[in-house]
Design a protein around this nucleic acid. Structure first.
Lengths: 365, 365
DNA sequence: CTGAAAGCGCTTACAG
DNA sequence: CTGAAAGCGCTTACAG
């Protein structure tokens, strides 16, 4: 941890100028300011209260705050656990709310008194991540991948397990397999579509545009997709729903339509947390562990800060995993549009004890 | 916001002594220390970095961190929204991890640089809340109720809606109604049991110990309860499950056992968030809004701090609400132990469109 | 646009 | 156990 004095020396200016640069006084020459900020970032500068030094990390939203989402919630829990090692605390920051337009990202973070930031990004805010990385402020981006090795990030590679999941359906005998994902374009979700596409291609199955559904990443979105699938004349016998909440919604709608899972339709979901255990039947799913993403991000960032290490291009990819549960089975012998059929069919209950996994959602780790 | 100088003047000591008292230097007389801390709390003291003053609120765990739980997650989202008005930020603090045994709660919070705390408590940490209140540090406790008017708190009164819910079952014709809740004794959950008890008493139904189930507040807990209920010789026709995750688990197990909800058994759940929309059929439930609890808590606390108002005895109770959905209906004409029956019965699908509520879990508010 | 100097908030040897 | 004084980290009129 450095003081204005050291920064002044390194940057070849007075402490007055350093203070001004850090606080974005507009009388300071842009070139000078940039030089000072660069040194400050290199030194991991944070303003100190008396003798005491800050131990706060920012959990930063670049756009809309989505703390309420299961994914964010699990990531944050992981972060809270991960900062334990170095005894840091986590403060939630909202860039859109608080960053002044005339200050740099570093200035904003220093003003908030955090020593590093974990960035919750979306596809549309990738450029902001690049800018933060360029300024040299200690950071780690969760859930996006970057080509430039300047951005530190951690993500899950979900393409190969997505392919494996769809190939599992094919192995079960399915030939008409739909794909659903939310309608916000981002890297991860395109990967999953790619995995789906590759699996089809590997087995000489046609890719059909009308079997790819894009909707909101909500229960309602999943419900809509299932309703659309159920009413298709030549109905898919299986669907890979590459978003957690949509999967839950789809299961609900299947029940409501009287479709038996997996006898009438097989569903593979995608899970960040343990939602797959909260529906019936337990979802076969491609899984990533949001908690671990948060945990690892916190660990990497706190260590970077502690060691004062260079913060260039640290990139980490965590594995996804594919879990087979009870929502998948062989395709039905023949399928007709379901709506005319459902009301009259007996739904056989699944045998008890068929599931694996422990079914403990949000239990202590 | 006051300085050491002002506190020194008020407390009749030097700034040296103030500094020592705040930092828990052990050479300072306990009496003096207490006087200084009392003044500091009255003035809402926080150490300042240069000219800048802190805008952090603590979201404090007294015991185990449960950020991963849907309830905490929703509360925190509400807090993050609620601090917007006064432009505060939220930092997650862990008392058990960081508080030194020889420092007071106020000293701990001041060291962490927060101007007030929202306290996530459990039954076993009620005493800590009282101590924090006694010290005079700006606080608000969520989800517990206190007789002493010294503790500021916000909670939901769930007894009357619990009674209403059970009376609703009675009105539907149920006479054998079970109750389930988790096995951690706390105020809220006892209220719900009381509501259940009152409803039975009001309608001359016997309260039976063997129909009250206490288990873990997890999916697994709810599953176990449902399994136990299903196997009882004189099986209850309805159950009020006064914990969200347990309700979801119970629904899963009912499906697995081939019990139709509500034809074979009616289930009323308890919901803090929107879990009731994520299962099939949508749960009839007593609901409290964890998001609003967090939002209101943040609003009250930030205003207290902003206005420098007296912080004694602010108590607020939010209403719960009772929502009827699809998991409740009249009792079956006759019931036998289910396990022998289930495999052979046709389960009629529920008519589509029977649900109310919008089914959008975690959608933007 | 920059810096030397004064000053604020806080802490800490040093003296009693 | 307490305080006057020195000192650190930072900011801010004031001067150039």
């Amino acid at each position: 941890m450095s003081s204005v004095r050291e920064i002044a020396e390194q940057a070849g200016v007075s402490i007055t100028t350093v203070s001004r640069a850090l606080n974005n006084d507009n009388t300071v020459n842009p070139k000078t300011r940039e030089r000072v900020l660069a040194v400050a970032n290199r030194f991991g500068y944070v303003a100190t209260v008396g003798r005491r030094n800050t131990t706060n990390l920012g959990f930063v939203y670049l756009g809309e705050q989505t703390i309420n989402h299961p994914y964010d919630c699990a990531v944050l829990a992981g972060v809270a656990q991960g900062v334990d090692e170095c005894r840091f605390d986590v403060v939630v920051l909202d860039l859109r709310r608080d960053k002044r337009t005339d200050e740099t990202y570093s200035q904003f973070f220093m003003r908030k008194g955090v020593r590093g930031v974990i960035i919750r990004t979306m596809a549309e805010s990738r450029d902001i991540c690049r800018d933060i990385a360029k300024e040299g402020f200690p950071h780690i981006v969760i859930s996006e991948r970057f080509e430039d090795d300047s951005v530190c990030c951690i993500d899950c590679e979900s393409k190969s397990d997505s392919r494996r999941a769809v190939e599992y359906l094919i192995a079960l005998g399915h030939r008409r397999i739909a794909f659903a994902v939310h309608n916000v374009p981002d890297r991860d979700h395109n990967d999953r579509l790619e995995g789906y596409r590759e699996a089809l291609a590997n087995h000489d199955l046609d890719f059909r545009d009308d079997w790819v559904f894009r909707h909101q990443y909500t229960l309602a979105g999943g419900e809509t997709v299932m309703k659309m699938i159920a009413s298709m004349p030549e109905r898919p016998t299986a669907v890979y729903i590459a978003d957690p909440m949509m999967g839950v919604g789809a299961v609900r709608m299947a029940h409501e339509l009287g479709l038996n899972i997996p006898n009438d339709i097989s569903i593979i979901g995608f899970d960040d947390t343990e939602l797959r255990f909260s529906v019936y039947p337990t979802l076969t799913a491609v899984c990533q562990d949001a908690y671990t993403i948060g945990f690892e991000a916190a660990l990497l960032l706190t260590r970077m800060i502690r060691d004062g290490a260079v913060r260039k291009g640290l990139q980490k990819s965590l594995p996804t995993f594919f879990e087979v549960h009870d929502s998948t089975g062989p395709p039905p012998a023949q399928t007709a549009p379901v709506l005319s059929l459902a009301r009259h069919r007996a739904v056989a209950p699944r045998p008890a004890g068929a599931r694996n996994g422990d079914g403990a959602l949000h239990e202590k780790r």
